[in-house]
Every structure is written in C-alpha cells, then in structure tokens.
Simulated assay, not measured.
Amino acid sequence: MKNIILLLLVLSIVSCTDKNEENDMLEVVTTTTMITDLVENIGGDLIQVNGLMGSGIDPHLYKASQGDFRKLDNADVIFYNGLHLEGKLVEIFEKMNEQNKTAIAISNGLYEKTLIGSEYFASNYDPHIWFDLEYWNQITNYVTERLSELDPENKAAFEANRDAYLEKLKALKTELSIKVEELPKEKRILVTAHDAFNYFGRTFDFEVVGLQGLSTATEAGVKDVQRITQFIIENDIKAVFIESSVPRRTVEALQAAVKDQNHEVNIGGELYSDALGSAGTEEGTYIGMYKHNVNTIVNALK
C-alpha cells in the first residue's frame, strides 16, 4: 500500500514537469533482464528501453525505488512477467492499468492450461516461463504484436527483427539439445537453490529439485536441507548448483550436510535463474545465459 501511495505522489509531481514531448520514440519500461533483452531484440534502435532490474537482482523480492516510479510515469508501455514473479510490484502495475497506463504481462501471451501449477504459490503457476524455449517463441510473437499496436509505423521493422530473433532461438534449441544428449537420462537430476528450473526440466527431460520454493521469499528450512541431503545420497548426485540472484549460503549448507553424512557433492557452478549476467557479457543476453546454464549443468553432472 505504501508503494502505491508513493507512486501516486510521484506521478502527480513528475507528470507536470519531466515528460519529454519532443521525443517521438516509444518509451518502454521492462522489469526483468530477460524481458529487457527480448524487447531490445524486437525494438532495436526504434524504441527506448529502460529496464528496472539489473544483473543478479531477485525479482521475487524487488521493491520499486523513486527512480523506478519516474521511469514508469514516462513510459508509453510497461512489459512485466506476471504470474506474481514481481510480487512486490503487482499492485503498482494493476493500479497503473486503472489509470490508463499500458502495463502488459508477457505471460498473457501463453495458454494458461499449459503452465506448470503449484499449490504452494500465490498465482498457482510457476512464473519462470523463460526457461521454456517454445514459450519464449510465443512471447516473442506476443511482444511484437503489442509493440506494433502501439507503434504501427514501425510494424514491419518489428516483425523483421522478430523473425531474425526467432531464427536465433531455433538454432539455440538445436545446439542445446545436442549438448544435453551428452548426459545420460539417469544423470539428468538438477538440484538448485530454488525451484526456478521446472520449465527447463520439462523441456530437456531433467528431474528438478529446489531447496526453496518457486519464490525466494520462501526460506529453506532444516527439514528441506535434510530431505534433499538424503535425496542426493540416494541418487549419488555429483553436483548441486548455486544461482546468481540467490545467496549461496543455503546451497553451501546443503553441501556441508551431505559431507556430514560421509558423502561428497560438488558445487557444479553458478546458474542464471531469475536474472541474466552482467550487461556486455555473453551471459548478459538470453541466448548466452541459456548456453552458459546448459554447458555448466551438463559438464558438472556427466
């Protein structure tokens, strides 16, 4: 509620002073780094993209700053994930839609019945939809359609950029499928800090186990560590993985608990789950992130 009150105060101040009326370029605000990268691929230099979150930022716990409110007020359109991924921003986006601001959840471009459900999460659906490559194709089309509606003069350019990006995603899926085949199916067990990789598991036939739930707002308890410790030992799992946007201490505690049971498990590397890598690096793109994750997982487990 405090965030919404602050938003209204900032909008009342900023809307009278700071809007750049001379710039005809579409102003787009995005939440996560994955969405920022996608919109930049589609819009190219025809739009201005401002991402709220950077590398290593956990969207489950993210709180908007006053600078974020300024970006939101200046935006012509806001793209966010939805499915309660940005848990602390949902009320703000809903309020903005009521005030005729265009805030679009990219998850609206998917068929709800195909989503992975969870009885333990507020939305009843797993929000980590970017790890399903077919979903990312559908979302690419959906975002292109919405941008074209807002800026019809550049529709042809958006569609050309979309087609080029879809070809890259097609090549990515082929490359990743070949890499995953290096790992026997019985070794495709992925243990991570939280349940961010279920869509990845469905895509590439992995069993996925997370210490925390779908949201990092849910802390892992002693029983969770004990349960997964036994799972690791019983399945002779060679490696577990930390995540760039989640503190590593929980996975390190798991590793220590396994060692206390006279068993060894390595930390196989760092995966990018809820955020991409640093801007300007290969992992700072969706495609580079996905390549890094698959290479890290396969090389550590085989």
Rank of each mutant, 00 (worst) to 15 (best):
A217P: 06
E175A: 08
A220T: 03
Y165R: 11
K101P: 02
K223M: 06
T203A: 13
D18P: 00
N266E: 15
R188F: 11
V77H: 03
G44R: 04
G288Y: 03
Q226K: 06
N74E: 11
D151P: 06
R146L: 15
K170I: 09
Q99A: 10
E22N: 02
D73S: 01
D24Y: 00
T32F: 07
P152D: 06
Y142W: 07
I57S: 08
A257C: 01
A253V: 12
T281P: 11
L190D: 07
R202Q: 13
G288A: 03
V191P: 11
F158M: 06
Q66D: 00
K187R: 10
Y142A: 09
G213M: 05
E22F: 00
M289V: 05
Q261F: 01
N299K: 07
Q230F: 01
S107I: 10
L190N: 05
I129P: 14
T36Y: 03
I42A: 14
K187N: 14
N262T: 00
M53R: 06
L172W: 03
K185S: 13
G269Q: 03
P127Q: 11
I233K: 08
G288Q: 04
N137P: 04
A257F: 01
S215L: 07
Q230W: 01
L115V: 10
A196E: 14
K173V: 08
M34A: 14
L166V: 15
Q255F: 01
Y120A: 15
Q212L: 01
D260P: 03
A279I: 03
G51T: 09
Y199W: 05
D76A: 07
F241A: 12
G221E: 13
I267P: 12
L190T: 04
A257T: 02
N154W: 04
G44P: 08
Y272K: 00
I232F: 02
L301T: 02
D274R: 07
T17M: 00
M96R: 08
L147G: 12
K291P: 04
E134F: 09
G280D: 07
V246A: 11
E186A: 14
A253L: 15
A220I: 01
G201E: 11
D163K: 11
E86D: 10
C16S: 02
S245G: 11
N198V: 09
H194C: 10
R146H: 15
S118A: 12
K113D: 14
N198F: 04
E21M: 00
Y286L: 12
S148A: 15
T281C: 10
L72S: 07
A156R: 06
L11R: 05
K88E: 09
R146E: 15
M53Y: 06
N293G: 13
Y120R: 13
N295P: 03
N108Y: 04
M34L: 12
E182D: 14
I228H: 01
E134P: 06
G221N: 14
A196P: 13
K63W: 01
D68F: 02
S12A: 05
T31R: 03
Y142D: 09
M289R: 07
K187L: 06
N108A: 10
Y199I: 04
A196Y: 05
G56F: 04
K238P: 04
T31E: 08
S244D: 13
S65F: 02
V298Y: 02
I57R: 02
E283D: 03
I129N: 14
G87F: 08
Q226Y: 01
V298G: 07
Y111K: 15
D73P: 00
Q99M: 13
N198Q: 15
W130T: 14
N141E: 15
I287F: 02
